[in-house]
Design a binder for these strands. Structure first.
Lengths: 248, 248
DNA sequence: CCGCGGACGTGCGCTGCCGCACAGCCAGTC
DNA sequence: GACTGGCTGTGCGGCAGCGCACGTCCGCGG
């Protein structure tokens, strides 16, 4: 067994938030000094559309969903945030009001920083701005893609994509989700999810029982999903690689 | 008749790009000195997804559509840019690759600035950044809303909304568009547009003939549209009002 | 061990939109 | 004044997903 210190270090390197990791060492140190580590509980609401934000979050092994709300009350998940991203980019953009509802979709830990502090950091530290700005760009591409994907792609493909994205972010083949919740995220009926999930299960790609889903065959699932999954990853990689101003 | 000078001034105040107008006077002057005025022709392609951008554009009375492309080639308009916005925010975010296809949907004039110059301005001028950042936020909300609107709302409502947005940006009740083009924008069949447009015409809200559409009853059209139109305007007003650091 | 509530399965009629196809119709052109 | 190409109208079969509703199954607490 490794010592506790070694484990923590490994955890930092493997599991830390990738945006934070992308900061040059000096920026990162100062930055981390003003963060606190918090545990996010499943279904917690970290932001409500139209209300001011108190904190920004950098997930480590938690997953946050961005859910937009229309004037008629209809809702749809439009973005997923894991350790590759952050919640609260609006602060960076000079707006302290949350644009979407942010709910914890997968419990776990995250780094949290006071919104006002984060804003000041952004104004002063151009390295930080560089990284965060690029992430904003990625998020915009994700939003645009979601719009088209939602229109053109069938529920089964979208579900497959969604499961892959979640799997990637929780870093585990198994996670807890009900069909009801998935229906909410995808903007379809619960019965529609049951049908699509049944099909994926029939193909031996996933397995689920009472709120717990296991991805059995990620490759196969990728084939069943729309290409939007691969594309999203490609955009992220392409856009943020260049922002890596220092090695971790 | 007013003198030419007076007309130019009126044109500047009424028709100039609102983002530019929102800049403090000093910033604005320097800014305008590095812009050139260009005429945008209908259907011109100002940016191709994945390719570097040479310029950023601030429409005056032209209208630009942002069209996203999926891996399977499917396309959907996800944003509209008129004199309230700009094309090329990615430059501001440190990415010089266009995220979406940008096509001129309504010919007219625009201010154009070299992308590299714009980038430098953004780095130096924090007032400029402030305004542009807020616009990025607005655009993100527009993208998120489009995703949900596209999923939940019927073609007729979406068409109505689209016509209202375009009308607002061209500043005229009459503009040139074929059903084919509208179908492309909305991601539906041409026949679907014909049907929806026929319905709107039957209600006396619009009139169209061979590629020319006239909005007869904006209020009525607003009632026929989904609430996303009003909402989008509200978000813009709320977000950018605060950014107005100086009076024109 | 039984009851209960939450999660999943299924069925039915309906509607909005699709894909395809063809028919009118208008505006320029030769 | 006929021709042609672009724009619009319409029809038909098909299907994905909706709304609604009821049935089943599992797991937990009493």
């Amino acid at each position: 067994m490794r010592s506790k210190t070694l484990r923590s270090k490994a955890a930092f390197e493997a599991g830390a938030n990738r945006l934070v990791t992308a900061l040059p060492q000096r920026s990162r140190k100062r930055f981390l000094a003003r963060c606190e580590r918090v545990e996010l509980r499943f279904a917690a609401v970290l932001g409500v559309e139209g209300e001011p934000m108190q904190h920004v979050y950098f997930p480590i092994d938690s997953v946050i969903s961005l859910v937009t709300t229309l004037a008629d009350g209809a809702r749809l998940e439009v973005g997923i945030i894991g350790n590759e991203g952050m919640l609260g980019m609006s602060i960076l953009l000079g707006v302290n009001v949350a644009p979407q509802r942010a709910i914890v979709q997968g419990g776990g830990s995250a780094l949290r920083m006071n919104a006002a502090v984060f804003r000041r950091y952004c104004e002063r530290d151009s390295d930080l701005r560089k990284v965060m700005n690029r992430y904003v760009h990625v998020l915009m591409e994700q939003l645009a893609q979601t719009a088209a994907c939602t229109l053109y792609h069938r529920v089964e493909s979208r579900l497959a994509r969604w499961l892959l994205m979640t799997r990637q972010r929780v870093g585990n083949d198994r996670f807890n989700l009900t069909h009801e919740f998935l229906a909410y995220m995808l903007g379809v009926r619960r019965a529609g999810v049951t049908h699509a999930a049944g099909s994926l299960q029939g193909q031996g790609l996933i397995d689920y029982r009472r709120g717990a889903i296991t991805v059995l065959d990620p490759r196969g699932l990728q084939r069943a999903s729309c290409a939007c999954y691969v594309r999203g990853n490609a955009i992220y990689a392409r856009t943020l690689r260049l922002a890596r101003t220092a090695r971790p």
